[in-house]
């Protein structure tokens, strides 16, 4: 009886992220699985390329993931790929510990959820799709809540500090902050006690700073409402794109945007797939010094 109730509750809670028919859900998950394996394949290659030690272990792990990527294009065996890759991810992240980034955790949990799909994918596709949507919104909500709790966003202090230490932030916020103000914060020594204040006078800058955590917390809450769910996902996509224009965390952005695309019809992600694949191939070639560019700057890893 208790199991039946908990099962019903589980289905009900998952259902709060929208009801999708199993065929459409399976289609969305197929595209997402291919993306995720491609993403993990490229990340694995970059880990080998920039590894100081254990290249052999990393290469073995990458080979399994590349095999999984190839498998994801097979109609019959694609469902098995996440189950094969999952233990390998554990090995990779254990090797990387304690420097496992939050997007690696998101990647791992996404694979875990996809691994729940069996050979008859359609049967659990809706639940898994809903689970991935929840995952996306929980992560986004916490990202906003943490900014609220640490209290560096009300007057833009954290972003002012980032302007001081990371060039892309300074370039991005030139439209809101005067060059004198940027020079002032850039002149502070981050490693000296008492340096600062990392605070800018521009009201628009403070507004932009607050919009970040408000959006990160607000869109997930709106996603609970069926009427505005798509709008909330669109808003979240716009927010992530805006954030990444300054942060340039391309690896995180690619993963998170694909998670957010799970709120829309599969064809959106499917149409984007060739472009994403081309970009990732470009990153690989740039890593191998075959073409210009430095993937380290894009934080793909």
């Amino acid at each position: 009886m208790t199991r039946a109730v908990s099962g019903a509750i589980s289905l009900r809670v998952l259902g709060q992220m929208g009801t999708v028919d199993d065929v459409a859900a399976a289609s969305s998950l197929r595209t997402f699985r291919q993306f995720l394996l491609l993403y993990a394949s490229v990340r694995s290659f970059l880990w080998i390329a920039y590894a100081e030690t254990d290249a052999g272990l990393l290469t073995a792990c990458a080979c399994v993931i590349w095999f999984g990527l190839a498998q994801s294009f097979s109609a019959k065996w694609a469902w098995l790929a996440p189950r094969i890759v999952l233990p390998v991810l554990l090995v990779q992240f254990a090797w990387r510990a304690p420097h496992v980034a939050n997007h690696h955790v998101v990647e791992f949990l996404s694979f875990t959820m996809l691994a729940l799909l069996g050979a008859r994918e359609r049967r659990d596709a809706t639940s898994v799709l809903q689970g991935l949507r929840w995952l996306t919104m929980i992560v986004l909500f916490w990202a906003g809540l943490q900014k609220l709790l640490y209290g560096h966003y009300f007057r833009g202090d954290f972003l002012a500090l980032m302007i001081a230490i990371q060039e892309p932030f300074a370039v991005f916020f030139r439209m809101l902050v005067s060059p004198e103000e940027i020079s002032r914060v850039a002149g502070y020594d981050l490693w000296r006690t008492g340096s600062g204040p990392f605070r800018l006078e521009s009201p628009l800058f403070a507004l932009a700073s607050n919009a970040v955590w408000v959006g990160e917390m607000g869109f997930p809450l709106l996603a609970l409402l069926s009427r505005v769910r798509h709008l909330a996902a669109l808003g979240a996509i716009a927010l992530v794109l805006a954030i990444e224009m300054a942060a340039l965390e391309i690896g995180f952005a690619l993963l998170f945007l694909h998670l957010l695309m799970l709120f829309f019809d599969a064809k959106v992600a499917r149409r984007l797939f060739p472009f994403v694949a081309l970009f990732l191939v470009y990153a690989l070639l740039a890593t191998a010094d075959s073409i210009p560019g430095d993937p380290r700057l894009w934080k793909l890893r």
């Binding site: 099962g7 289905l11 809670v13 949990l109 875990t112 659990d124 995952l135 992560v139 809540l145």
Partner: peptide, 30 residues
């Protein structure tokens, strides 16, 4: 939603696993 409430036992079990993962994810940051 009616069809979903008559989900197969395996699907219900997987829904429970999914909810377990999500609850852990939601609480862990604390």
């Amino acid at each position: 939603m009616k069809a979903r409430s008559k989900a197969a036992p395996a699907s219900v079990a997987k829904a429970r696993v999914l909810l377990g993962i999500l609850c852990s994810l939601a609480l862990w940051p604390v």
